[in-house]
């Protein structure tokens, strides 16, 4: 079933000023329920602008946004605000939005706004804390005493606690060390598996997306250039490179092998498939030329 759809979605910033800028230009996307979608594109390609439309933070200049079949901007305001609980959005650098005295209270901010009862709020706080892999001992600490990576996980938990049908994360791994990055990405993957909810993960790095996503939306200059399965997107790796996107190391290795004359596939982006491809070539007796 389709959960999110945009029709000819266009957004211009600073209309009527010398800084007018078309950040989105006729975007049509459709996301199925339960799908894990990667959104990739260079900085400034319109990724953040696109996702801010999906929970009615930004109003389209033109076009429509449908969530669960309902046109967001033809509904009344109260209904529109409801969709914020249906589509949970984690902005870039979410650790800068923490404000409460304790981690517990900060995660509870969203559920409280939903007017849930205390017991339910408590359950959600603990559950989302578990999803981001933090121990309950941090619940009474001040969020400002945590490390950068921990703060970010708390902020993500604050949105997971809304238990949204769709979880959208804008560059959740930006600025973290490799270990912190892998940790966050695998937590999100587990969350997706366990809850079965729809996930949109925005990144400018293929490596973050390739291993997790079912399909990929590639953006360039405010337009959607591709929206296909991961395999189909990687078959067009040369186009990705031309767009200035960095592709996974392992894919580069196979493209180089191909150029050197080895008859190998180039749509390879995980170590596992790489291993299988090499083994099959070796046992199959592939050789130069």
């Amino acid at each position: 079933m389709e959960i999110i759809r945009t029709e000819n979605l266009t957004h211009r910033y600073g209309i009527g000023t010398p800084f007018e800028k078309t950040a989105l230009d006729g975007v049509n996307i459709s996301v199925r329920e339960g799908e894990y979608v990667g959104v990739i594109g260079q900085t400034g390609s319109g990724k953040s602008t696109l996702i801010s439309h999906l929970n009615a933070i930004l109003k389209p200049t033109e076009g429509k946004v449908f969530v669960d079949g309902a046109d967001l901007w033809s509904e009344n305001k109260a209904r529109r605000i409801e969709t914020r609980f249906k589509v949970g959005l984690v902005f870039q650098y979410p650790e800068y939005q923490l404000f409460e005295e304790t981690v517990y209270k900060d995660i509870a901010f969203g559920p409280k706004n939903m007017k849930l009862d205390e017991a339910e709020i408590d359950r959600r706080v603990r559950e989302s804390l578990r999803f981001v892999g933090m121990g309950e001992d941090c619940l009474d600490k001040s969020p400002f005493d945590l490390s950068g990576g921990q703060k970010r996980r708390i902020a993500i938990a604050g949105v997971m606690a809304l238990e949204p049908k769709v979880l959208i994360l804008d560059e959740p791994a930006a600025g973290l060390d490799p270990k912190g990055r892998d940790e966050i990405l695998s937590r999100i993957r587990d969350y997706h598996k366990e809850t079965g909810s729809t996930v949109l993960l925005v990144s400018h790095s293929m490596e973050d997306i390739a291993n997790n996503a079912d399909s990929i939306i590639v953006m360039e200059g405010g337009r959607v250039r591709m929206h296909e399965t991961v395999d189909a997107v990687f078959e067009r790796a040369d186009e990705l490179i031309a767009m200035g996107l960095d592709i996974p190391q392992i894919t580069k290795v196979f493209i180089d092998l191909r150029e050197k004359g080895y008859d190998v596939r180039t749509d390879i982006y995980t170590i596992e498939t790489a291993k299988r491809e090499i083994l099959s070539k070796l046992t199959g007796g592939a050789s130069r030329d």
Binding site: I81, Q97, G110, V159
Partner: peptide
Amino acid sequence: IISAQKARGADFETGNIFRRAKALVP
């Protein structure tokens, strides 16, 4: 920050003046 708190359901527009002032804390 306003967008991020709105995404968590914060409401800055309804209620009396005290509620609105309190809504500014986040």
